[in-house]
Structures are given as C-alpha cells and as structure tokens.
C-alpha cells in the first residue's frame, strides 16, 4: 500500500485536491482525515465512494494526536485492502509537519493566501516532496509566478504543481508524482522529518488561569525590551 501524507493550512483545498487525485488513480484509495474540532469531510469522501476514517484531536495538540495515530491509520489501510492511503491534516501552527522520512509528503497551499505566504510556512512546506498550489485560476499569472518562486525559495527540491480543485486541471501531474510514493506495511520505527513542538506545561494539563504563578513546565518567555528579539 502506497502511503502519502497531505497537509496544508485550513481551507487551502486539501480535500478537493485529494478527490481530484482519486479520479486520476487506478486502484483503491482510502483517506484518514485528521482534524481538530469538527470535520465535514466524511460525507464528502463517502459520497465519492472513498473509504474514510476521521480522527478529531479535541483537547489534544492536533499534531501530537496525528503522530500518535498515524501508525494505526496504516494498519487500518492494510486491513481494508487499500492500494493508496492518504492522511490529510491541517498544519495548524505552521510549525508542525506531518511528513515522514521515506513517505511521500504533499503540502497544499492556495494562491489566494498571498504571494508571501510560502515564506511563512515552516517545515510542512520546506520538507514536502510535492507542493500543490490551488486556486491559481482566480489570481493573475504574475502572482502565480511570484507565488511559485517564493515556494522555490523555501523548498529547492519539491515538485511544484498547480492544481485546479474544481476542474481537476493539474491533478493528473500529481497522480504521476505519486508513482514515486513508497509502499509500506507498517510505520513502526519510521521517523518524522521534523520534531513536534515542545508542549509539557501547566496549560497542557488544563490550566486556564493567566499569570506567572500558574505557569509551570516547559515554556519560553518573550522579551518586551526595546531591542528584544520578537521571534525565537
């Protein structure tokens, strides 16, 4: 079973890209959708005849939730006799990346999000094998070119593919790219390409009060001095 991780900011068009990709692939494709609070994609996938599992992270960090459950997704895919398994997750803090070493990673970004957006997205984009750019049909050619150039500045080696999530234009090239995706039977001992953010503080365990006395565990304080650094 070929495994592909698809990630991207909310509403970038991940689900549409996956649906258009499914139309181009011969073989049985299934999706595991990771989301936070709610997801409407189960119906979308089911009505396209695609087997789907939805995991909602709820009170857990969505990326930690993802990595704790992705190996189970592979077991489910194998049991269901899939030829392709796609995990779909939103890179919610732009710090995380669901991509796994040796597993094809696709990052979906939409051109409407602004030409400089590719520079703001971290390892989810930087470490992707394929960057799928959506909604390019409604922005100018010049903006598409600048957008793709900014993607290239962040990620030198990825294949950049423009995909129209409505007409499917470009999805064929994505399906060609998936020919390189590796087949797996298990993710046991596989590694993430990038670490998850540190999170072991009072707020992780349900603290809601604000102020120094309540802040315990792993944390980082910003400097508000005149010459202080505004980023870590």
């Amino acid at each position: 079973m070929k495994l592909i991780t698809v990630s991207g900011p909310p509403s970038a068009g991940k689900t549409s890209v996956i649906l258009r990709l499914a139309e181009c692939l011969a073989g049985r494709l299934g999706v595991v959708k990771f989301d936070c609070l709610t997801s409407f994609d189960r119906e979308t996938y089911e009505s396209a005849g695609i087997p789907v599992k939805v995991g909602l992270s709820g009170k857990f960090c969505p990326d930690h939730f993802y990595v704790n459950n992705v190996d189970g997704a592979v077991e489910w895919g194998i049991r269901s006799g899939l030829d392709y398994l796609i995990t779909e997750s939103a890179g919610l803090c732009n710090r995380c990346s669901p991509h796994i070493t040796g597993i094809m990673g696709v990052c979906v970004i939409d051109c409407l999000s602004g030409v400089r957006t590719p520079r703001k997205i971290g390892p989810m984009l930087r470490l992707a094998d394929v960057v799928a750019l959506t909604k390019g049909d409604i922005v100018s050619q010049a903006e598409r070119e600048v957008f793709a150039w900014n993607v290239r500045q962040s990620n030198e080696r990825a294949q950049i593919i423009f995909i129209n999530g409505i007409t499917g234009q470009g999805a064929f090239m994505l399906s060609k790219a998936t020919e390189d995706a590796r087949s797996v039977n298990t993710l046991s001992d596989a590694r993430l390409r990038f670490t998850m953010p540190t999170a072991a503080c009072a707020y992780c365990t349900g603290e809601t009060r604000i102020g120094e006395p309540y802040q315990m565990g792993m944390m980082e304080k910003m400097s508000y001095d005149e010459y202080g650094e505004d980023e870590l």
């Binding site: 050619q141 010049a142 600048v146």
Partner: peptide
C-alpha cells in the same frame, strides 16, 4: 515537472489581482 508550471501562462476572465501593492511595487516584485 521541470518547468515549475512556467511553460504555460494562463489568462482568464476570472483572474484578479489579490496582492495589496501598487502597480509599480507589483511589477518590481514580479
């Protein structure tokens, strides 16, 4: 795959500029 989608330029009636820049700044960026 080698052209990064640059082999073909497209123009359509549905296209809009979405970047908040002046014409001069925009062309300089391109």
């Amino acid at each position: 795959f080698g052209f990064d989608g640059k082999l073909v330029a497209q123009l359509s009636q549905n296209m809009n500029f979405v970047t908040d820049l002046t014409v001069g700044e925009f062309l300089a960026m391109h």
